[in-house]
Amino acid sequence: MARRIEDLRIGFIGHGRHARANLYPALGLAGGRLTSIATRDRAAAARAAALHGAARGHGDHRRMLAEDGLDAVFVSVAPEDQAAVTEDCLRADAHVFAEKPLGMDEAEARRVADTAEQAGRSVAVGFMKRHAPAYRRLAGLMADEAAFGRVLSFHAFFAFSPWTDTLRDDTYLKFGAVHMVDLVRWLFGEVAEVSGHTNSRGSDISMAATLRFRSGVVGSLTLAGVPAWSREQEELTVTGQRGFARVENLSAVAYHHARRAGAGRGEAWQELDEDTVVVRSVNSPASGGHQDLYLRGFAGEVRHFLEAVANVTPQAASAADNTATMALCDELLRSLRPAGRTERGPNL
């Protein structure tokens, strides 16, 4: 029987920077009401509870799970802890929204999926790009076979400046670029073959991969984590038989459909006969500062999770689906070959 989102008993484990900036506000926009918050420090949890209107703050998430009768729990803790904490929530009969990465590799992700199946509870993973309006528009364009034609290829680019000098290829991929890995799976299906190269030096990350999907789609994925990209950048261009589309930084989608020459008309180049449509987000103070939460997909992913819990419907990014994304991350890392260094002499 369907329930109202505002009637759900919701807990939140974690109160870090990402949670405060994106998940707590998105939860409010979705109409959710917090029952309790848990952090590692009871006093900090009490302050967080007061800030977000929760009735209780706990210094131990296991106590919160045992005492508060929660329907759903949000988990946003250290990456290496998220799988175990998620399993604690599942064993307490709560549905879970877990930030990525959920599991540090395929094996850990599969363990969480098995626990969710045994508990009969659902797990949504924080792959918010699936809910970003720009990528939803792109998916709709690709689905219009008459206008776009069969999807042939893509190029994806994702870059940002590292937030720590301890990042390496594996942690960069699984803590950040995993979003693009999951996105191309969502758009194009499962991957049949992967090959790649890395030119990383310490925490300066640079890698490129070529992917062939079971659907026949082929594409390239270029990833970077270096100080040059203090302005985070992401781009995705998809080519079909009769059209192409490009998403840039989640705020604009450009798409073009090829026109067939009409009867009695000359060559297309003799006329102004080609158009590319560009759609952008509206720039308005009416957003109240929430626009980024919608455009990046945070508002959409949280709303979807709460609606799924209230109506007992499947999640868009389940624990089982997450296993496939983490498996692809592992395969990408195994495929990477170091780029050879070229020594340049004084006369070269």
Rank of each mutant, 00 (worst) to 15 (best):
D7G: 01
G11M: 06
F12I: 14
N22I: 09
L27V: 03
G31S: 11
G32M: 02
L34W: 05
T35W: 01
S36D: 10
A38M: 04
T39K: 02
R40A: 09
D41S: 15
A44V: 15
G53H: 10
H58N: 07
H61V: 10
M64S: 07
G69S: 12
L70D: 13
V75H: 02
S76G: 10
D81H: 15
A83Q: 06
A84D: 02
C89T: 09
D93G: 05
A94H: 01
P101C: 07
G103N: 13
R110F: 05
A113E: 00
E117K: 00
G120V: 09
V125Q: 00
F127P: 00
F127H: 00
A132Y: 00
P133N: 10
R137K: 04
M142W: 09
A143Y: 07
F148T: 07
G149I: 06
S153N: 11
S153R: 15
F158L: 10
A159V: 11
W163L: 07
T166R: 14
L167K: 08
L167C: 12
R168K: 12
K174C: 03
V181Q: 04
V184W: 01
R185C: 13
L187A: 12
E193A: 15
S195E: 14
G196N: 11
R201M: 07
A208T: 14
A209W: 04
T210Q: 08
P227Q: 13
W229L: 12
E235K: 12
T237C: 05
R242W: 03
R242L: 08
A245F: 15
A245P: 12
R246Y: 08
R246V: 14
A254S: 14
R260E: 13
A268W: 09
T276N: 03
V279N: 05
V282G: 09
V282H: 04
V282I: 15
S284M: 05
Q291A: 15
Q291K: 12
R296C: 03
G297D: 01
G297S: 07
F298W: 00
F298M: 08
E301S: 15
H304C: 05
L306A: 02
A308E: 05
A310L: 00
N311M: 07
V312Q: 14
P314H: 08
A317T: 11
S318H: 09
C329S: 07
E331T: 15
G340D: 10
R344S: 11
R344T: 13
